[in-house]
Structure formats: C-alpha cells, structure tokens
Design a protein around this nucleic acid. Structure first.
Lengths: 211, 211
DNA sequence: CAGGCCATGTGCATTATTTCACAAAATCAT
DNA sequence: ATGATTTTGTGAAATAATGCACATGGCCTG
C-alpha cells in the first residue's frame, strides 16, 4: 500500500544507493533482482530494501523479485533524476576544478553551466570542460540567464556563508556546500552540507579506541 | 554522568560538527559559549548539544556555558584528532589530485604520505605537494614502510572494490571511499563511503516535488 | 488446473534518537 | 549571605527508524 505520508529521510538516501548497483546490472544476465541480493550489494537489510520501496508503490513481483530496468526507472522518477539539472559552482580551487570535470555528475544529469571565482587571476580562464570562469558579481545575472537550479560551494570556509547568501539572492533553488562550515539559510531553504573531514573524524574516533 | 555505554553514531558526527565553529571562535571575544549559541551555529537543538557532550563528561559550567578552548580540546581528544593520522590515496584523477592538496585535511592532522595510480603515464610524476605518484603494486610495501593508517579511494567506481581489497591486505586500519559504489569488507572493518552524488539526489528529490 | 514454492508487502514489536522540562549548580548584585 | 538569574545535565516522554515474521499472491511443475 503506497503511503504518500512522511518518507523517512534515510530512505531517500538509500534510494540513491540502490540505483548504483542497478545501473551496473542493467546490461547483465538476470533481468530481475531480489531484495536480498540488492540489500547485499548495498550493505543494508533485505527488509529495509522492501520497506523503502514500498513507500512509493509495489514495484516487485512476489516470488520473483524486482525487474532491474523498471525498478531503476522508478527510482529515478522518485528522485527526480530522470531529468537534467543545471548547476553552477563557486570557488575554483582544487576541489572546485575537480568537481566541474567530474564524470559522475554529468553522467547522472547534473550539468555545470557556470563557474565563479573571486580571484581576478582566475577570472576569464577557460576550463577543460569548456566553461569560462566568471567573477562572483555576475552570479545573479548568470543564474537567471542560464536557468541555474542548484549552486555548489567549494570556497574556503570563511567565504561559504557569504556565497550562500549570494546564491540565495540569485534565487537558486538549492545549495550543495562542500566547505567545512555549516551554512545556514532560513525559510526552510534546501541546503546540503557535505563535509568530508567529518567522515575522517568518524574513522579517527573509532580507530582511537580500537588498539 | 558520563556513560561509557553505547554512543549514538549521529552524536559522533555532530561532535566533529561542533569543532568547526569552536576553532573559528578560538581567538575572539568571549572565552565561553552556551549550548544555545553553539547549537545555532551548527544548526541543531541546544538540548542535542548538551546531551551529546554529556555522553563523555561534564564539560560545562552551569549558568555560564562551555569554555571554548577547553571544549575544543576535549572534543579533539574524544575524536582522536589531537594527533596526526597518516593517509594514502589511490586514484590520482581530478578528485584525487584535489584531495591530496586540500588544506582542510592537513590542517586537521590528516597527512597524505603516499599517492598511487594504475596509469603508467601518471606514475613517477611529482605532485605539487611533493609526493611522487607510485604504482598500485607498491601499496602493500609502502603502507608498511610509511606506517599508513587510513586509505582513501578516489578511483572510478568499477575499480573501487578491488582497491579496497588491496588496502585491506596491506593492513591499513580504515578506508574512506569516494567512489560512487558501496565497498564492502567483512569482519567489521572500518569503511566510510562518501558519495556526494547521493547528496545531490537528495536535493533533486526535494526539488522535484516543490514546484 | 491444482498444489508447491518463493520473494514480496506489511502490521507489529523493538530499538534508536530526539525533544522536553526541570532540578542542580554556579555566578552576580544587593 | 541570600536570592535572583542563568545555563547546564539528565531522567522520562515522544518520535523516528529498523527488524521480524508471516500472510499474500504470482509463477511453475506435474
């Protein structure tokens, strides 16, 4: 029974997770997969897989499993990744430069259409992907012109909040922040903070009490 | 009352979060901070901050707050980030190259001491940080020699699992995987998967049902 | 076409995490 | 000192997420 009620947010994260092995399995042998197998590939429990999917409909066939292609299609529809999204990136240091070129983004339909930096040295340079680095004061203008939906922040931490405000004013619909500062924007604006030093500290915590 | 029992894993993640603004506040005016203010800076609830800290001891003074410097010290001790950790990185594409140079790692005591790649074109090149790219078949040798504790994976997804196995065999103590595949290693080995396309898909999900 | 088989879908129990609300303790002003 | 004020530390309540266990319903064999 499909529930249009509240979806647990871990469920959303896992849907994205499930799509990875499904993509890989697309060409290969059995066109169906069981919740048990998919769970194993993703490191979760089979019941979890079934429950997550059940929030959105009945995609499987009892006694058989899930059709790989159809399931992937459904997940993409749910996550709204069955379409392209336009992104811009602010802060063209090492990380920013790496992300614009990153194939994993493009392949999944996340297309960078503008790159910004405050450094006059960098402005005007052409990136390998073809984009020209623009000055930060053109953010508002280009977000409108190029219909940019998501802003990505890869500046140093002390600039992140200011850039986030700029992006909000420019009316991007969501922000993905890689700077190790929590950027806060009121009004239930969509912001995801990705701080990978946090993940390292997680490892350090566990390592610190093992030996 | 300190509880040596099970610590919720979200608590660990948040401790790392708390340390960010504390670092920034180190020099500035009031030497103490309230749970309310810290919570605001990190985007969590004040009760959450207090409970998280209370798992590890009584670090605050009632009616006053927490001493910024002392609290940061405590958190670092808890997370075992009061010392340096040695890392290696495998896969010197755009992302890998960006991460070795990343200042946020070094500043927090995560020191890259080796870089590997399978591509003979890249092997032997010297990176801006001074490291020379080594061939993947030297992983075992160098992990031992340079006492590498944590392995970072930035290869394409289809290589990630194989590299993870190599790192495990080489006896690194933990793995941080940036490839968009869940790498699985049995025996409760320490692995963190950081997939930022997952974060984007999270945003896409919410964007897809807003307008 | 009947019966066995198998993996899904799901209500319910369990466990995990967060929030609430207030007593306890420290500071400060009088 | 004493009382007012402030903010911590913490049980207990509420909420959220996960795991269990089994009925359900398609598929396949004979």
């Amino acid at each position: 029974m499909t529930k249009y009620c509240k979806i647990p947010s871990p469920t959303i994260e896992r849907l994205a997770l499930y799509s990875r092995p499904l993509e890989a399995l697309l060409g290969s042998a059995p066109p169906v997969i069981s919740s048990e197998r998919l769970a194993e590939l993703c490191g979760v429990s089979p019941a979890q897989v079934r429950k997550d999917l059940a929030y959105f409909g009945e995609f499987g066939v009892r006694g058989v499993g899930y059709d790989v292609r159809a399931l992937l299609q459904e997940i993409k529809k749910i996550l709204a990744t069955d379409r392209d999204w336009t992104l811009c990136i602010v802060g063209m240091g090492n990380l920013g430069s790496a992300l614009v070129e990153n194939e994993n983004f493009r392949r999944r339909g996340y297309i960078f259409v503008a790159a910004f930096d405050a450094d006059p040295e960098k402005v005007g340079k052409t990136l390998p992907c073809g984009l020209v680095i623009e000055p930060a004061n053109r953010i508002r203008e280009l977000v409108r012109e190029r219909r940019i939906q998501i802003g990505v922040i890869t500046t140093p931490p002390y600039e992140a909040q200011r850039v986030a405000d700029l992006l909000k004013d420019a009316k991007v619909k969501a922000i993905l922040n890689f700077a190790p500062t929590q950027v806060r924007i009121p009004d239930c604006y969509l912001v995801e903070n990705v701080d990978f030093t946090v993940k390292l500290e997680n490892l350090a915590y566990h390592l610190g009490r093992l030996p």
